[in-house]
Design a protein around this nucleic acid. Structure first.
Lengths: 342, 342
DNA sequence: TTGAAAGCGCTAACAT
DNA sequence: ATGTTAGCGCTTTCAA
């Protein structure tokens, strides 16, 4: 382990001088060019690497950013992977390193990881929170202590903080408008669960309701069915909807797996997609892309959300004041699952 | 920021004593019960949290483990996420934290992140390497310096080290045997690329070759086609294979997206699956599970691979000597894409 | 521009 | 069982 002391000894200066050269970027340190050169050469020759714990202890910074998830299982969810990929992309061009933390602590006294403690223990300089089960009080505590963080793809009612989200209310409206413009008047919605995260009602659903009102689309239990995000649940629900008195001509499914479930339900009932039924998926993935009839889907750009969240956090760490709400817009990716009707 | 010194002052003992209590688990510290209690109570009341950088500086340990990937894009790959989920699962019940590192450094002088430096800079105590593009010399350097690491789902020819892999040669044989037992003699293979990672030839391919020899299955260019892992490439290749003189009765596709490509090629040629063509996928995902005809697939248990790798690394960090090769066996998940032929 | 000295918060060896 | 002392490797005043 080679230290600054070693370099100082060889060069014939003090540790402090070495630090002044090696801790600042090549550009400007207050040390004379020749000495600077000498020090850099020796450091290179010895393969010097700074001890980041020592540096952190002295500077009170960790140069580390944490991502917080609910549980390790979420890492396998396509939306989360996209988000984390975006975060990693942003981080990897910076000087920060990235750590993963999971709220869920099976078999520990504290059921939920204490976020403020991550700061107190000097594990992170800032946090990207993509955990829908997070305790609201934990968030409040972070704000009270002025610990920097950004909410990723989530928000907490009544709390004003930095966050990056998609326009979930807007995109459900967009779907309604899209189908309406194709001539559909009987549209059923399988948006998934009513609640996800700390808020009482998902924005997607409020978006559906307001858009339905706007376009005069009838809702009600035969038009809006809440289930889990689940292929089979969607399959069942769709089957019932499609066998009802006046069956919908279009179905909006909350995510990709659900959209596939809806498709299979239609096929199993002898219906053709899109001739007899138009389908839009609320999430895009290779499941929708590679479906037998490629499915029109909302592409929510989660990679972008992660990327912008990491960027925003870094701005905050650089002293940015106030709070910012960044909204990442969706795209509607048209494929072959929808058609005009008269 | 409350420190041990603060606690010592209140309790009326020295910092050292506080450290002896708070750094060991409740079980045994050499301090008298009553003093121990006092210290714990005060620590609790003040909300004391240890400064991990200070501790690390003193103990020369980071209590951090790093996962190394090729690039951030790999985070969107289902196999990788399964692996990382497994790693996270294992880590989250330990006292280690987890960091993500990416080899690829766009626009820096060193094109590849220097792994040994992660140790020298005291960022990690150990590394889980799941990066197929890793420079072999980087691995050699780690060994030379005795820095602990485990290769995850990869191996390097001629290097004997700790690793956890799946039985890729075995599972391609298993596929051949499975199809052979169903009566298939004309089997085509679309295993993906010939090379992936630091070794000259993928084990899956050598597995296919030896199994083909064993069962007397003919290979050759009309039976073994190398492409990228890509739905469209597989679609094209399958179309050609299925239009050739004596077309195969079964196709083995390297991964889930390719298997779907093969399926669509068959359908587009008016063939029925499995009546006219049996399909086996080399990777399992919801793409195979939710396909119109659910596809029989090799399930490689990547979560298990990640989990075991993290476990193994922790054993090494606890002083385990020697090297271990852990092989995680596959499962063949039978669905509806294969049938017996006469 | 450089050196001297103190300190970041913790642990560990040596004493008692 | 507890106190004393000396670092761990770096940064940062304050002087010169």
């Amino acid at each position: 382990m080679v230290t600054m002391k070693d370099i100082a000894k060889i060069v014939g200066c003090t540790e402090a001088t070495v630090s002044r050269v090696l801790s600042k970027p090549e550009g400007e340190s207050p040390i004379s060019k020749p000495l600077q050169e000498k020090i850099r050469v020796v450091a290179d020759r010895l393969g010097y690497q700074p001890n980041l714990m020592a540096r952190g202890l002295a500077t009170r910074k960790t140069d580390n950013i944490g991502v917080v998830l609910d549980c390790y299982e979420h890492l396998t969810h396509p939306v989360m992977m996209q988000t984390i990929a975006g975060i990693t992309k942003a981080i990897s061009t910076s000087n920060y390193s990235l750590s993963i933390f999971v709220l869920d602590q099976p078999g520990r006294k504290e059921k939920q990881l204490n976020l403020a403690n991550l700061f107190a223990r000097r594990q992170v300089d800032g946090l990207l929170i993509a955990a829908y089960d997070v305790d609201v009080l934990a968030i409040v505590e972070l704000i009270k202590q002025k610990y920097p963080f950004v909410l990723v793809n989530m928000s907490v009612d009544g709390i004003d903080t930095n966050l990056v989200v998609n326009d979930s209310a807007a995109y459900s409206s967009a779907v309604v408008k899209y189908l309406y413009d194709l001539g559909h008047r009987e549209i059923a919605f399988l948006p998934g669960p009513s609640k996800y995260g700390p808020n009482p009602k998902r924005k997607v659903i409020t978006g559906i309701e307001s858009a339905a009102a706007e376009y005069g689309i009838r809702l009600g239990p035969s038009r809006l069915v809440l289930t889990e995000y689940d292929r089979d649940a969607a399959y069942q629900a769709a089957k019932e909807l499609l066998q009802s008195q006046n069956r919908p001509t279009a179905i909006f499914a909350g995510d990709d797996a659900m959209a596939v479930g809806v498709y299979h339900a239609a096929v199993d009932l002898g219906l053709q997609v899109p001739q007899d039924l138009s389908i839009v998926s609320g999430a895009d993935s290779y499941l929708t892309k590679f479906a037998p009839v490629p499915i029109t889907a909302i592409h929510a750009r989660h990679l972008e959300i992660g990327y912008r969240a990491a960027e925003l956090l870094q701005e905050v760490l650089n002293g940015k004041e106030g709070t910012e709400r960044v909204v990442i817009s969706h795209q509607l990716t048209e494929r072959n699952s929808c058609t005009k009707i008269n």
